[in-house]
Design a binder for these strands. Sequence first.
DNA 1: CTGAAAGCGCTTACAG
DNA 2: CTGAAAGCGCTTACAG
Lengths: 342, 342
Amino acid sequence: MAVKIYDVAKAAGVTVSTVSRVFNHYQDISEATKKKVLAAADKLGYTPNVAARTLSSKSLKTVAVILNDIVADRFDGVSMQTILGVYQYCNEHGMQFVLYPTSTKLQHEKTFGQFCLERNVDGAVVQGMHIDDPYLGQIAAGETPVVMIDLEIPGANVVSISIDNVAAEREATQTILKHGRKHPVMINGTHAAQVSALREEGFRQAVAEAGLVLPDDGVLYADFEIDLATKKLQEALKQHPEIDAVVCASDAMAIGAMVALRAAGKQIPRDCELVGFDNIGATEYSQPPISTIEQHMDKIGYTAAGLVDKLLQKRLAPNIGHVYSDYDFIQRESTGGLPMDH
Amino acid sequence: MAVKIYDVAKAAGVTVSTVSRVFNHYQDISEATKKKVLAAADKLGYTPNVAARTLSSKSLKTVAVILNDIVADRFDGVSMQTILGVYQYCNEHGMQFVLYPTSTKLQHEKTFGQFCLERNVDGAVVQGMHIDDPYLGQIAAGETPVVMIDLEIPGANVVSISIDNVAAEREATQTILKHGRKHPVMINGTHAAQVSALREEGFRQAVAEAGLVLPDDGVLYADFEIDLATKKLQEALKQHPEIDAVVCASDAMAIGAMVALRAAGKQIPRDCELVGFDNIGATEYSQPPISTIEQHMDKIGYTAAGLVDKLLQKRLAPNIGHVYSDYDFIQRESTGGLPMDH
DNA sequence: CTGAAAGCGCTTACAG
DNA sequence: CTGAAAGCGCTTACAG
């Protein structure tokens, strides 16, 4: 039933060594035998067994996508985009691909090194880590090439990739402030996410540039949760009914903010502008559509896999540290306010 | 660096056979040596190598999630839910898990059997197949246990799982019709998806039960695409301004429908009720929130993996054929119309 | 209850 | 340019 390398060798009249060489694209194979082998393999429907290859080979590389604490919340197709980006790169470059959903709990049961050994992982693309996760130190100190998405950590074999979060949030905030808004508030995620600090930095820069003074409670933390964003903004609106712009570190929170604004009788964008982050599908079709930052996560995944590849081949310039991917600020109706007189 | 079974054996003063037996939960091991082995393994941080295990073992089972033509459209966290459901089952039951995103194109490059051989796949959970995909015949005729999500095909080793699509769409439609709506229209997906036919059947049943006659153009096909749904409904509204209910085979299309209704000046639910399918995040926070069917895809994934497991152990009652998973009809404002006089 | 040994399906120095 | 052979890290009959 199952066709092995030996069957192909037999059918082609060569040894398994030769078949293996053909399939691994060795150069010094005569065209004639290469043809014979390929024909035999094709006729028999042969495909090399991955487990056997990874076990015996040093050259078959497998890269893992490690997704930490993914919440499948019906909302977010974003992790899937990253996965597909990595998968595509692997597919195009003859590398193996494995997906490993993990969690802070699982990280305590098995070290990062153990996981890599167990699954023959040669390199990894890691997303969703919190700044106090056990894997972080292990990754930084380890030998395994790792590309971290959205989290910069030290480490000789570690490169991080993300968009320029500071610039992106700054641009979004600037746009709103140019419309004459004077009382912006930010709804941020959590201190456990590095991007939160960066986006807040961008927000604060734009506010300062505009010559505005942010009150002490000008940044709310809603842990990237919809309902919490609603609640936090509702409380803030009681203290500061003058709020006329809400900058959110995620689209989910922007949607939560929208609920609060609606409840407060604020019309978007007339009374208050609103901007999110991530460009999840819901923002495009909400009423009004919400302006946001598109990060092109599929591209980030693809690029990240390419970086792992380069890291594996030691072909990456030293001290690369961080790679910036491009983003787009997508303007929709929620920031469509005309410049105001003042 | 890397710790192998031999290292553990040496440290524990036994042979690799014994260590292997301990890790595979053999019964006839003395408590004493078991303790020794476990202690040594723990101290060294040993984890069995998966490639070696799958290569040499008949008992380590690996189940694949095969996702066909996934469009990472920033919209749909639903595939991710299925993946996580399968992953969780595998994790809890000591089975290996692999993800294989495929496409109609890739299906032509490699047969289903080849894929299973190549990756040592013992069983698979398959989602997103079209009714004319190459894999379908191969799966039906094959030896590999497969659980198909949302698509029923024959085959001795095949079981399908889905919610009762007919009943679900029927229930959704009934609800709307009970509100007195007289001119319903359905926006369906594509004939290439089996669920489309079933949902249409449910819709038609409810319409007939209500004593209504559906016009020939009472069902539109929008291929599960947002923009196409908008366009199709816009055209339909020109012909039939009397439309007062739109039943959609997916939430994405419901969101597209909403755009058309808004453009036509129809207020939801006052002038026209609307219902979707899938319960993607966007429906909950749209304005108004859209009623829909929650399929619990994580549970379907988990159950599907369990069925694969049973299939592998030949412990499934013969002629199971199809397993129904439960669903919930979630009523939101878009079907919140009060009963009308007539 | 445990060891010795063959074998899973490949890859890759080493010869020639 | 191609073969013969060792080895990757495990599992599992077969003995004892």
